[in-house]
Simulated scan of single mutants.
Amino acid sequence: MWQPSVAPGAVDRIACVGAGVIGGGWVAHFLARGRRVTAWDPAPDAGDRLRRLVDAAWPALETLGLADGATRDNLTVAATLEEAVADAEFVQESAPEDLGLKSGLLARIDAAAPPGIVIGSSTSGYRMTDMQASAVHPERLVVGHPFNPPYLVPLVEVVGGERTHRAAVTWAEEFYTLTGKTVIVMDREVPGFIANRLQEALWREALHMLDAGEATVAQIETAVTAGPGLRWPFHGPCTTFHLAGGEGGMAHALDHFGPALEYPWTRLASPALTGSLREALVTGAAQVTEGRSTADLITERDRRLIAVLRALREVGA
């Protein structure tokens, strides 16, 4: 049975394969957390471009606070992929979104990296089951999907493929968490994962409205940034709907607004509000809000909204 050879908290040497916007963001993040990073990218100017990216990110990382010993001097740019991963204790792959390219690259990384280390992929949509098809040791391959820029946005979505060992998923969750990330471990594979699918739904509807002449780009942007976007740093769509139900919470909101799911407000097909779906929403809202009263939630929401509004004013947004 496969087992990781290094504990998540003991990782010091990280290899980042692919040094574009996402890969470079990972490099900056890991350096800021005090790790040593070896990067490789096939582009001839990859080293210079990567260092410019890290330099640009560093002031923000200094503002947030660097880990002890964090320095840009811990970055090495390798001449070959094999050199980059030879002594790595974790590998983060961030190649372009091409299934054949990523599958072949992960197989190369798997062949060259030490046998007991976990290999994560930054893919924004592919299933690990499809990407690990050519690997000799697929059990250690996981998705570690970040959001741009990875050195600031905390979310990482982790999921394994059909041939991934559960220990690799557990290891990745702990490792990313220890580097300061907010980790979602998905229960099952789904193309696009969770956040991208939600983001894509909003994007698709925006395109529909723009294409039909129903809204301008400026109106769409303002509709989000001056409206629901203000709540999203702390309340997702389920908790927002729960609060829309007042004292009755999610149950009242579904009974009151539920029929609107059938209205043609969106070009996306809405699921039928079945009894099981209703129960899942009511139960989920109760779990997320942990039994707190509507009054307490509203007080917290308003306090956070004021803080966000003040922050936006400070930066002139």
Rank of each mutant, 00 (worst) to 15 (best):
M1R: 12
P4W: 12
S5E: 15
V6Y: 10
P8L: 10
G9S: 13
G9Q: 14
V11H: 11
D12Y: 03
I14L: 11
A15N: 05
C16F: 05
G20A: 08
A28T: 06
H29M: 09
F30E: 03
W40Y: 15
D41S: 14
P42F: 07
G47R: 05
D48V: 12
R49Q: 14
R52L: 15
L53M: 14
D55N: 11
A56Q: 11
A60S: 15
L61P: 09
E62W: 12
E62V: 14
A67G: 10
D68G: 13
G69D: 06
N74T: 09
L75Y: 09
T76S: 13
V77R: 07
L81N: 00
A84K: 02
E93A: 04
S94M: 05
P96S: 11
D98R: 14
I109F: 01
I117L: 15
I119M: 10
G125C: 08
M128R: 01
M128W: 02
P138K: 06
E139M: 12
R140G: 12
L141H: 04
G144E: 03
P146Q: 06
P149A: 09
V153H: 10
E157H: 01
V159I: 04
G161S: 04
E162V: 12
A168N: 09
V169C: 04
L178W: 11
I184S: 01
M186C: 02
D187F: 00
R188K: 04
E189R: 03
E189T: 05
G192A: 03
A195P: 01
A195K: 00
E200G: 10
W203E: 05
R204L: 09
R204M: 09
A212H: 03
A215E: 01
T216G: 06
V217A: 07
V217G: 00
Q219S: 08
I220Y: 01
I220L: 12
E221P: 00
A223L: 03
V224W: 02
G227Y: 03
R231Y: 10
W232K: 10
H235E: 13
C238E: 14
L243M: 06
E247Y: 13
H252L: 15
D255Y: 07
H256L: 15
F257Y: 15
L261M: 13
E262M: 13
T266G: 05
R267Y: 13
L268D: 11
A269R: 14
P271R: 08
T274F: 01
G275K: 03
S276D: 13
S276W: 03
E279T: 07
A280V: 02
A280H: 07
A280P: 00
A285S: 15
T289M: 07
I298F: 07
E300D: 12
D302T: 06
D302A: 04
D302K: 04
L305V: 04
A307V: 01
A317T: 13
